[in-house]
């Protein structure tokens, strides 16, 4: 593993959709072992940025390298685990058990003709154990709670033994206690398993102690290298505009929905 080459190397990336600029001139590097939080107002372009990093959206201009390779040449997608924004909203009727879903994480790895090896089974079990869903493995995903689904989706991403885990606000519809547990787990994955984490969230106050850097995205990117002082980061309120005081609320570990 080369620690000098950034996992993501983004230079002057812009994205426009029919005249509308959605992202302009984003430049950033993400290195091995980092824990990056991405925040920004709704519609700020966080999801779009991630989609470009993953090759799901083509940038209008700019350069993008993954693990030192231009994205068009990049092949080692199994190194990246991705949990999309809508992850916990699975189709109720989809005929898959928790285990079926987590096993998907191995598919790209074991190749077309190879069967499912003992090691694959082991890795799948490990991923489920880490996410504390091993006891649910035979359950249909449609019958799980929001938090359980979220953990299933992350277990699937973990099952490919990724070097990077990208999570796009996977918390929608998850209760506070499960969220806390989930943040602890992310921090553990980052510290103990050295998995690089890129996490889009609105809960910045809660994870401020865990992260190494904070990116704020609102058409442009601002990079705060000292996230513990995030909340005084000057550009913040400019970027967030009206949302700025929402963030300082989170600092006191108090979420709006809970009425404190």
């Amino acid at each position: 593993m080369n620690f000098k080459i950034p996992i993501f190397d983004v230079k002057n990336l812009s994205f426009a959709l029919r005249e509308n600029t959605i992202l302009s001139n984003i430049s950033l590097e993400i290195f091995h072992g980092e824990y990056i939080a991405i925040i920004g107002p709704n519609g700020g372009g966080k999801t779009t940025l991630i989609r470009m990093l993953l090759g799901l959206e083509k940038p209008t201009s700019g350069e993008l390298k993954l693990f030192g390779k231009r994205i068009s040449k990049f092949k080692e997608w199994h190194k990246i685990g991705f949990v999309p924004q809508r992850a916990s909203l699975v189709d109720e009727n989809f005929p898959a058990t928790v285990q079926d879903i987590v096993k998907m994480g191995r598919i790209a790895k074991y190749g077309i003709f190879a069967g499912f090896s003992k090691k694959d089974t082991q890795v799948v079990e490990d991923a489920m154990r880490k996410m504390d869903i091993l006891h649910l493995k035979g359950k249909m995903v449609g019958t799980l709670s929001g938090g359980q689904r979220q953990r299933t989706m992350i277990a699937r991403a973990l099952a490919s033994s990724p070097e990077v885990l990208i999570l796009d606000e996977p918390n929608t519809g998850v209760d506070m206690i499960s969220q806390r547990r989930f943040y602890k787990l992310l921090s553990k994955l980052n510290k103990e398993e050295k998995i690089t984490i890129i996490f889009i969230t609105h809960d910045i106050g809660v994870i401020a102690d865990d992260i190494t850097r904070l990116f704020t995205i609102n058409q442009k990117a601002t990079i705060c290298n000292n996230p513990k002082e995030t909340l005084s980061c000057e550009d913040m309120s400019i970027l967030y505009g009206i949302d700025a005081h929402l963030i300082s609320n989170h600092k006191h570990n108090c979420s709006g929905e809970n009425g404190c």
Binding site: L56, F94, A96, I107, A108, S160
Partner: peptide
């Protein structure tokens, strides 16, 4: 039969399958 696992993954989530290298 050869591609059933991959096809199943695509049915579940086409984009996530793509990002996984399928």
């Amino acid at each position: 039969l050869i591609f059933s696992k991959e096809l199943f993954f695509i049915c579940y989530d086409e984009e996530v399958a793509k990002v996984s290298g399928i």
